[in-house]
């Protein structure tokens, strides 16, 4: 069954809200309310519309924010972890590593020297472009990596 444009428009509202404040705690209950969809259906409908489950989408936005802060600011990594919605630096570092295949520190060292000619692109577009392409679950990726298949 295809999804009605009215439903998609409401689901888009959840996606927009996560884009706008990825550091916030986005429970399924909260997102379902934003989209006026029942909690039981929300995750499935969101995945059908946007290709990945809401929590994984949120993860891509948080990692994108973190990479931007690592690249463009001198903030300590602890501060960046908290600003992008993690409660512990350890979890942040582990998930960052799982997704980008390098640690936050390595990423910062590699990218801080690259000059920035990005001003001419609207920031929302830049942010969308910089999202990691999380087409598999983080745990699955970790499993494949340890099995030497990635």
């Amino acid at each position: 069954m295809s999804q009605s444009p009215e439903l998609l428009r409401r689901l888009l509202r959840s996606k927009d809200r996560m884009d706008g404040a990825p550091h916030e705690d986005w429970t399924v209950e909260r997102l379902a309310q934003v989209s006026a969809v029942s909690v039981a259906h929300f995750s499935r409908e969101f995945k059908k519309a946007f290709g990945l489950p809401p929590h994984r989408y949120l993860l891509t936005r948080r990692i994108e924010r973190a990479t931007a802060l690592l690249r463009d600011t001198d903030l300590p990594i602890t501060e960046i972890a908290f600003r992008t919605g993690w409660n512990s630096v350890g979890t942040f570092g582990r998930i960052f590593n799982d997704i980008t295949c390098e640690s936050p520190g390595e990423f910062r060292a590699r990218t801080s020297s690259i000059s920035d000619a990005r001003q001419d692109m609207p920031e929302c577009v830049m942010r969308a472009v910089d999202r990691p392409n999380l087409n598999i679950a983080v745990l699955e990726k970790r499993r494949l990596k340890s099995a030497g298949k990635l």
Partner: peptide
């Protein structure tokens, strides 16, 4: 038409400034 309506509702159309 249904596909186009879906694409717009998903925010998949090009950015405008």
């Amino acid at each position: 038409a249904q596909t186009l309506n879906e694409m717009v509702a998903k925010g998949a159309m090009p950015p405008l400034v």
